[in-house]
Design a protein around this nucleic acid. Structure first.
Lengths: 257, 257
DNA sequence: GAGTGGTCTAGACCACCGG
DNA sequence: CGGTGGTCTAGACCACTCC
């Protein structure tokens, strides 16, 4: 990486120009896992205040190009992991290759107004909520709150220990024939508990995915999942006919073209 | 909104606590379009430096709760717009209700390495690229670069004016029978040109969606779309059987539960 | 011109990590 | 312990919008 980096006059902010310079350096002179010079060193080298440098690093971290670790340094991030989110492969409890989820807890409570609306049931109706963490290669990638109206699980056995109840709910869901799902994805930030489960500080960006599952013409579950935006790329597989080359082969198309 | 807001001792950073306080105020005391007191006023009221207050506002803006306009003030944001992204309804050129796209330009050039890989063709092969902007309610919500190998469009007429060529490419695509698509969504930031098309400053967060379209067992197009993360919520409709209550009815489930 | 958010500075102290 | 990133401060000036 060059010594100065020639901050141009100024139609564009310094931090943005810095980001560009650093990005090029990352692409050409560093590789995954390497540590950058520390912030005080970098800010001196580029002749800017540390806060300004940090603004540039913030951008690059948001883009998933850098990882900053307190007490360690700033590292070049690994490319984002493609995380499949279709029901068949991974999303639905107990399906094929899923030891990928770890159940955190399970509660049973009356539905809040918002939750009732999302599930299309009456406010105050009993709802089971299973919280799970999705693991990819052993690392926590997402949290999920799976809300299921008690009415949708007629055969659920009576009270049990919490972990048993979670298992029961999940097992019951497996048996339902889900014939439709509707998803939405938006940007959010991790709140305290989520952040802890994801091993990230509060305020970290997440991709919030909301999924409504339908069976026999009725909604039977509402899942709210928060995926770490720094390390995850959500991939939506095709139920269709052709096996398409996995997305991710497209790495770098956006900027390189 | 209270006058002080009682910043607690400190296991949690001030800016994060501030965010919480402001979030509650937004939910209870303000409504869409209202302007907050200015930053100097707010920072004084909460007894913090302006930079600290801004850190809290940054978070809320990332969450899509605030919009800041230079020279105007900080406003309460409208809820995010649900933007459908399935091929049938909106994504594919010329489909049903689409006057929703505005073509920006159309270029024909050899494929870069990354692009060739994404399309499964040889590097340097000729590719048509149509850039478009997606409009929702008249506002620019996304940009798209649609890359199509020339080889996939055998009947494309010879050279023409750029706007005509764009039209031709899109029309040819309509005629192909697409039988598969593979999507990925991740977080990114808007670069200069994108940012301009989206009427946002560079560095604004975007949801980057990469879509591979297949027809007759081969990839025929690669689309890279960048959606404004502040105002968009991507919704994935079901090709399935049941008409599911639109996601968005689930508003507020995540925090309220 | 007055008022807004956007950028930038130069410093300070803290929390965490490793040897 | 020294070194790292994380937070916070108090100020300055700029770019923009509206009157």
């Amino acid at each position: 990486m060059g010594t100065t980096g020639q901050l141009s006059a100024v139609p564009e902010p310094k931090y943005w120009h810095l980001r560009t310079v650093l990005l090029k350096a990352i692409d050409t002179e560093f590789s995954t896992g390497q540590v950058l010079p520390n912030e005080r060193e970098l800010s001196a080298r580029f002749g800017v205040a540390r806060a300004t440098l940090r603004q540039a690093l913030d951008q690059l971290e948001l883009e998933g190009r850098l990882v900053r670790r307190r007490g360690i340094g700033t590292l070049i991030a690994a490319p984002r992991v493609g995380v499949p989110v279709n029901r068949q492969e991974e999303g639905w409890p107990g399906a094929a290759r899923s030891q990928a989820w770890r159940t955190v807890d399970c509660t049973t409570a009356p539905a809040s107004a918002a939750l009732a609306k999302g599930l299309g049931i009456a406010e105050g109706a009993t709802v089971h909520t299973v919280r799970r963490v999705r693991l990819v290669e052993g690392r926590a990638m997402a949290t999920e709150s799976l809300h299921v109206p008690a009415a949708a699980l007629p055969h659920l056995p009576g009270f049990r220990a919490e972990s048993d109840r979670a298992r029961s709910v999940l097992r019951q869901l497996e048996r339902l024939e889900v014939d439709g799902e509707s998803r939405a994805v938006e940007l959010g930030v991790a709140e305290a508990e989520e952040a802890a489960l994801l091993e990230r500080p509060p305020g970290s960006p997440v991709l919030v995915m909301t999924t409504q599952y339908a069976a026999a013409g009725r909604l039977v579950a509402l899942a709210v999942s928060t995926y770490r935006a720094d390390t995850c790329k959500l991939t939506f597989g095709e139920t269709g006919l052709v096996e398409v080359t996995p997305v991710g082969a497209a790495e770098g198309v956006r900027t390189a073209s």
